[in-house]
Design a protein around this nucleic acid. Structure first.
Lengths: 119, 119
DNA sequence: ATTTAATATTAGAATGTTCTAATCATATAT
DNA sequence: ATATATGATTAGAACATTCTAATATTAAAT
């Protein structure tokens, strides 16, 4: 992966990397919400929520539709957002490998094996 | 989602949120690598790579098996790591909703609808 | 026109992350 | 024992993010 691409992807994942933003996304995942709805639920000020929404909007994770004075926020890339939230909420047991296991994987030809004639 | 949980999950996702760390994970995903292998590939110093590996280890995304002077690093939560990397590399078209669409979703009973007798 | 409600913006302080330079630790080879 | 190779650690500077306080904007209600 080249560095520019890595940089872009890191920017995207950074948008998820804050507790308040995760909570906003979990809330929006359930349905459209305006800022005051979120103020009632989250332990954060209006200004702060608005700032985090700006971060999420810049990352194109959310957008809003205006309804009079209200802004109805929604998740604008649901597959991505739900995918990440689901991964974060799932249990992921830690695997441990010994040097011997790694050696055996290599002998068998692991994930890094070279392409070979005939496939 | 309560705040402690959100905080924990944010800590986890933060471990992904750096270009160099994404590149390390992409590399380890292909197979076990030692630090010098990575130095050859990444535009970063040995010290810096080692520091990023510490972050990844603390998040339990990677671990290593010692082989003499070498440390063979590997991905220790492959489902999680591959899940996130796959989501980041996939294309996720942005959806746009108008106020009217949102109204119609609500009328139909959207994701936030209440539980109702009889299920 | 004024007031109220909803939300955004801005400046700067507080805090957190990352990088660089120097140094250390450990294993193997000589 | 010394040298070499691999990798980690530490301190602090550089940089980025987040929060707080003050203020602005916009739409609706009076």
């Amino acid at each position: 992966m080249d560095s520019d691409l890595a940089y872009e992807r890191a920017e995207l994942i950074k948008a998820f990397a804050h507790p308040t933003r995760l909570q906003i996304l979990e809330e929006l995942r359930k349905g459209t919400r305006c800022v005051t709805d979120m103020e009632e639920i989250l332990p954060a000020t209006q200004v702060n929520i608005s700032q985090h929404l700006t971060v999420l909007r810049n990352a194109k994770l959310v957008d809003f539709a205006q309804d009079g004075a209200l802004r109805c926020y929604y998740v604008s890339r649901p597959k991505l957002v739900e995918g990440v939230l689901d991964l974060l909420s799932a249990d992921h047991p830690v695997v441990r490998k010994t040097r011997e296991q790694i050696d055996r994987e290599k002998a068998r030809g692991g994930k890094e094996r070279m392409a070979v004639r005939g496939g």
